[in-house]
Design a protein around this nucleic acid. Structure first.
Lengths: 195, 195
DNA sequence: ATAGATTAACCGAATGTTCGGTCGGGACAA
DNA sequence: TTGTCCCGACCGAACATTCGGTTAATCTAT
């Protein structure tokens, strides 16, 4: 290994560091000084790679949104009986959330203080609306219970999935493999806790 | 009406304003200037009522934690078969969350940047641990499914309940009454989405 | 009832620090 | 050499809080 080799950042690698710190401290609770310490470069060096703090946020939430909306374009989300599509979307959303955990985490925590955040929140509402329609279709086809209002059910379902950002860690805690988590989500969501 | 009448704040009423703004903008995204504008008094006047920004946070999360831990002391959470206790706790947690929505919302969003936040997070972990044990008991008594690990199931269950802070609004959106929401939570949690 | 004393609630200015970002220059690698 | 990547010093604005003072309300003595 050559010690004279300079480890340099790319916008991508810098983003990964930034997103991690944003998630730990919150976006507003993270100063550029915090970022520079975490990245091991000076604060001003960051501006070589990105125009500003908000650009980091924009890239991160953009990546998360791309992942989520991508699911809705997949075959399993478009073809077939509504309840199967909903189950597919449930699985894939859980998988994307775990694959892009830092980015989706950040997305789910935006508040609306900046234009970037407000746009991200708007996009999230679109996604929720799409899924709510899917759930409504499954109820109409008689596969899902009708005694819980579709919008409410959607919110509770995605509330559960999105909660993964609060506790799921890819490095594994005990026997929690990714597949186990996905299966658990689907089981609890569709069949509940009861034996 | 006499225009010279002075509307004064109490720590309680000021807290309510603060918590609302904290929830809109995030704690770190909220400056004392934001608070002073929302409260309609000067920034410095706030310090007559509270020692500092963090004291507001401390009071708010304290109130939320008091509500949640209070549930665990209630009769329905202590006596009877584990699955009934779990259902009771599920209902009561949902109710407390809705009754103390601003305070629980703030609690659920703390990050850990201040001592107050770190202590609150520690307390939340205690609460989660208590509930996880209850769910484990219900599995052991054969009332709840054993194919989903108890800790994971607890997290998904409370993930769903806690998601209310993101979308539940007491002023009602359509037919969403509080009782309807509580019933929906219990139904989806214990019996799932399937018809 | 009234005036003076006291207190609570409030104010704008000031303070020291931190914020996101800029600038001129240096270090590094090809 | 040149372009990329980085640096420390610096900027004006904003941060949470303190300071000395004002105002309105309340209390007390007459």
């Amino acid at each position: 290994m050559t010690m004279s080799k300079r480890d340099t950042y790319t916008p991508e690698s810098l983003l990964a560091v930034a997103v991690q710190v944003f998630n730990e401290r919150g976006y507003d609770g993270t100063s550029m000084e915090h970022l520079s310490r975490a990245a091991g470069i000076s604060k001003s060096s960051i501006y070589h790679h990105v125009r500003g703090k908000e650009e980091l946020l924009q890239r991160a939430v953009g990546r998360a949104l791309e992942g989520l909306f991508g699911i809705l374009d997949e075959r399993g989300a478009r073809d077939g009986r509504a309840v199967l599509r909903l189950e597919y979307v449930t699985r894939r959303t859980t998988e994307v959330l775990m694959d892009e955990l830092p980015y989706v985490t950040l997305l789910l925590r935006v508040r609306g203080n900046t234009p970037t955040e407000r746009r991200a929140m708007e996009r999230r509402r679109e996604f929720d609306q799409r899924v709510s329609e899917l759930l409504k279709d499954a109820v109409a086809e008689g596969d899902l219970r009708a005694d819980v209002e579709a919008r409410l059910a959607t919110r509770l379902l995605f509330g559960m999935i999105n909660s993964l950002v609060e506790w799921y860690r890819p490095d594994g805690r005990g026997a929690e493999g990714a597949d186990q988590v996905v299966d658990a989500v689907v089981r609890l969501a569709f069949d509940g806790l009861r034996a």
